[in-house]
Nucleic acid binder design. Sequence first.
DNA 1: TTTT
DNA 2: TTTT
Lengths: 160, 160, 160, 160
Amino acid sequence: MLNRVILIGRLTKDPELRYTPAGVAVTQFSLAVDRNFKDQNGEREADFINIVTWRQLAETCANYLRKGRLTAVEGRIQTRNYDNAEGKRVYVTEVVADNVRFLESNNSGNREGGSNNGGGFTREEGSGGNFSRGTASRGNQDPFSDDGKPIDISDDDLPF
Amino acid sequence: MLNRVILIGRLTKDPELRYTPAGVAVTQFSLAVDRNFKDQNGEREADFINIVTWRQLAETCANYLRKGRLTAVEGRIQTRNYDNAEGKRVYVTEVVADNVRFLESNNSGNREGGSNNGGGFTREEGSGGNFSRGTASRGNQDPFSDDGKPIDISDDDLPF
Amino acid sequence: MLNRVILIGRLTKDPELRYTPAGVAVTQFSLAVDRNFKDQNGEREADFINIVTWRQLAETCANYLRKGRLTAVEGRIQTRNYDNAEGKRVYVTEVVADNVRFLESNNSGNREGGSNNGGGFTREEGSGGNFSRGTASRGNQDPFSDDGKPIDISDDDLPF
Amino acid sequence: MLNRVILIGRLTKDPELRYTPAGVAVTQFSLAVDRNFKDQNGEREADFINIVTWRQLAETCANYLRKGRLTAVEGRIQTRNYDNAEGKRVYVTEVVADNVRFLESNNSGNREGGSNNGGGFTREEGSGGNFSRGTASRGNQDPFSDDGKPIDISDDDLPF
DNA sequence: TTTT
DNA sequence: TTTT
């Protein structure tokens, strides 16, 4: 049907890049999104929302996002469940992102070092996908290039 | 910061209306949102997303939504956690709705009986809120009347 | 950067399907979206929003949407301008849709005749696109299949 | 029905604050939103989208937004029309914002001078609105305080 | 009438 | 140029 989410918040940690057995890149991170209102103690709370990205977008996120960075995420809510070690069913709700925007430059001398002059963005690529797999280095002069959409990866591929 | 969700799906059950100790109405339901793609078996899966509504919107949802109804929901993602009976921390992710749209009329002879000629909607009221509490009956001839962020300014007022 | 629109409203007329000189399908229609508030006379006004769809999505819209149908549209706002016959510059703002959802079935005995059991949808396909061109007949048993995104068509292609 | 827009872009000029005859503040500005794809010449174009804000939000925008600032806007598409000096009907499509987020601090020594440590935001207040009118000075130590749709209910109130 |  |  229709399922659309747009968030702006800050990463609670550096993103984690993994690969499925089939070599597909997956990056996860959590976004702290401050609420627009204060609680009864006058404190502004936040929602901590788990984000998942796939393939090229996963690699770009792993390369350019860092803890604390202000970031915009567009995607859809996904629910899934699995049985944990104790045999109990665990329900997971997360946002599968297909568009991520870096709202702050990487000016600190971290490994990427790049200065992104005013907001990089990246979208999940089309399904025709000759995307690089099995490696986090894109060797692309402009990490914020563009593209389309889709998802042809089964949940069975998930490494988590 | 910014946190916006828009969903269209069908209720998996009738909604559940409760009241807080302070008498505030809360309605919960789950929306099945079909995915736009098929899994590896060619099956179209769905995401099951928990929705929470408060106050007058909660009462309207309890009165007019039913299992299976096609429904649009607008709101924000909320995360919270609590310790369950076994002392384990449970993490919850849900959508707090502030706008719900009934996309199908209640034509079947159920208790509401109302025919909503082409799509009712309802919005959460402002915070000033002298909302009715402690009762599910609104006694309003048109449940799909107004709401929310009105703008009581005529176009004639425009300085441009 | 980021540019996302989601609308639910009713078509003010039947959609219009055209083709660019290069044979690319384009469908336009206008959506009447009722406002959530009433004006100073107690009347509920509407916004009339122009929608454009391309390629396969254009053909599906032309085939299945009709005047008055309740429809959900997801896309982005586009602005463009051109000089009209009198040499005056005209500014256009419209929504380029990449996801359209038919919220009402085609139950009346119109040419499509199809009953869409509870909400069809369709998304713009990926760029790999071997989409049919030059014809409005899709000959597809399921018009509500899925797909990805992109747009590799220049504005010069526009037939309007 | 449903009408939601979310944009991230840069102001093309300083915002313009005006007042209606009744003394209601209105601020207008235009947002340049870069497209996610390049045109046939390999150039990245932008959409130039007109934004309108009302009342307190208008005054905050006038005080804190400046040309070139990266800004997030949430609102709805509005269409209206009027007859111009030559008696020709002019059609206008614009976004009425109810939530604006300043994604860059005002670090340059401009009149506001404020450093907004990581993103200010502001929401349109509820309709109950005893908003200040007829003046642009808010006299508020923190212009990025809260507002909008608060929920004054503690988690302890939850019946589940 | 367009921003970095 | 506007829908139910």
